[in-house]
Every structure is written in C-alpha cells, then in structure tokens.
Design a protein around this nucleic acid. Structure first.
Lengths: 141, 141
DNA sequence: TGAATTTAGTTGACTTGGAAAGCAAATTCA
DNA sequence: TGAATTTGCTTTCCAAGTCAACTAAATTCA
C-alpha cells in the first residue's frame, strides 16, 4: 500500500485544516470592523441568494449545525439583521428573511469579502482557483 | 474586474469551509471510538514527529491557539497521554513529551486515520491528492 | 547592575458550540 | 378518526474556545 511513512502534514485532513484556519483568520480580521462573525455573513449571503429558506436548509447551506444556527439567528434577530416568519404551509417551519438593514449591511460587508477572496485568488495561478474549487468539492460529502 | 456576480458558494473561503466541515465530520466519527478529539490527535502526531516541542511551536504546528492548547494539554496529562517538562535552557519553556501510553494510543489511532485519509484520497484521481495539497499550501499563510 | 521591556505560557471571566432531550406540528396507518 | 411515528426547530446542560489579564523568566540597555 503506502510506500513510506509520510509525515502527517501531508494528510489531506491536515492540509484542509491548516488552510481553513488561515483563511478564517484573514476573514475574521476583515469582518471584525463590521462587528460580525463569519457564520453570520454566510447566513446573510444564503438568505440573499436563496428564497424563503427554512432553518434546516439554511443550516446545511451555511455549514452550521441546527442548534448553533438557532442561537446565531437569535442574536441576528436582536441585531435587527433578519427576522423569523412562520411558514404558512407548515407551521413547524421557519422562513428566515433579511431585514432592510440586514441587506444594507450585507452589501457593505460583501465588498470586503470579495476583496479578501480576490487576494486569496491572487495567491494562485490563473486557473488554479477554479481547479482548487473542483478538487475541494470532490472531497466534500 | 469581476465579469459577473458569482454565487457565494464559489468563494474559496466557502469551499474551504465546506471541505473542512465535511472532512472533520468523517474524522470525528472515526476518532470517536478512541474517545479522542481531532486536536488531541494532531498534538500526538506533532510530538511523535518533532522532537522537544515547546508549547508555542506545538500550538502553531497543531493549528491550535495557545490558551486552547494549554487546556487541551491539561486534559491529556490527566489522561496520561503526555507530560510536561520544563526546558533547562529556558525555564519559561515547556517541552511536551508523549508518554509510553500516549505512543501506544497514537499508533493505534494512526491506523484509523491513515485509512480515513486513504478513503479521502480515493475520492480524487491519482495525482490530484498531491495537487490539492499543493494548492492548499499556497493559500495557507 | 538593575529597571524596563519582551517573551512563554497559563488563568479567569465570558461566550460559543454541541449532543441529547424536549416540544409541537404534520403525517402515517390501524 | 385518533394513537403512534416522524419531522422541524429550540432549549438545556455541559464541554470547549476566546480575549485579555497575569506570572515569571529572559533579555535589553542606560
């Protein structure tokens, strides 16, 4: 099987964790001036992109566990960024919506995130950004 | 600049977060039967690989913030996996060492991790594993 | 030398995250 | 129909993480 004992830094899991940590640190620093965390940004982008998302759908798109999302949304509601609306087709479901303020803030934050993502892409050769996305998607179940 | 508004899922930061979440979930499930968390495994591998690591060096290699590492090490010490040794060259530094039990446990866990990493590599074409590592290292500061 | 600064690591107060239990609406099927 | 099950989300309780402050050793330099 494996020809030699490779150092553990060459494990895919390690490389992904290292990249994630690095990217998250840049991102957190960038979002700090907006007083918001990465997860909240993802929630806002998801809400802007998809329409009438339920908590469950949102949790999976925004990469957040349901209980954690529930609490994050509590905070975002009290910050006036989003509001909950009970679905009329199924009373158990919640449709989450961006408030006007939420949308404004999101557009503002997006500029910085785009810039940051551009810088990240700048670290790669031209087509490598797309290639990286493709490879990452393959290991993402 | 950007020709069109791309969906936020194509951001490198999102793809990395998604991959990380997915890999971590597999890994956590795998390590559950050993009653250990991913970070503790990384600590053990770091200690096995490098010699006489200080807390600071370890924190950076194992991708853990110093205060978090300090507490994790407390737990690992009381589980008998590692022990602290004050460096004689600098009394402020701690050299962390695997205990005998720690080494045994590590070797045992390593088998499962290798297997899991193999499965991950199996999701990619032959040379893509190495390619992914290379691309990830470029965005890791 | 010795006061001031820097560096290594830990601690403490506080926040956040997660697993499992809980609640209520919807669905199944006897 | 109505009891049993499933589904969607939240709450609770506890474990873990973070920021900032702290201790102590080493280093700087006046």
């Amino acid at each position: 099987m494996s020809e030699q004992t490779s150092s553990f830094e060459t494990h895919i899991s390690y490389a992904v964790a290292a990249a994630h940590r690095s990217v998250n640190q840049r991102m957190t620093a960038q979002l700090k001036k907006h007083g918001i965390q990465i997860e909240a940004w993802r929630v806002m982008e998801c809400l802007d992109a998809g329409e009438r998302l339920t908590m469950g759908a949102l949790a999976s798109k925004a990469l957040i566990n349901p209980p954690t999302l529930s609490k994050l949304v509590d905070r975002m509601v009290s910050d006036g960024l989003v509001h909950r609306q009970i679905s009329q087709s199924d009373q158990r479901e919640i449709n989450l919506l961006l408030t006007h303020l939420g949308r404004i803030r999101m557009l503002d934050i997006r500029k910085d995130v785009e810039e940051q993502d551009g810088a990240l892409n700048g670290l790669l050769e031209t087509e490598d950004g797309a290639l990286l996305l493709k490879l990452l998607s393959k290991i993402t179940v």
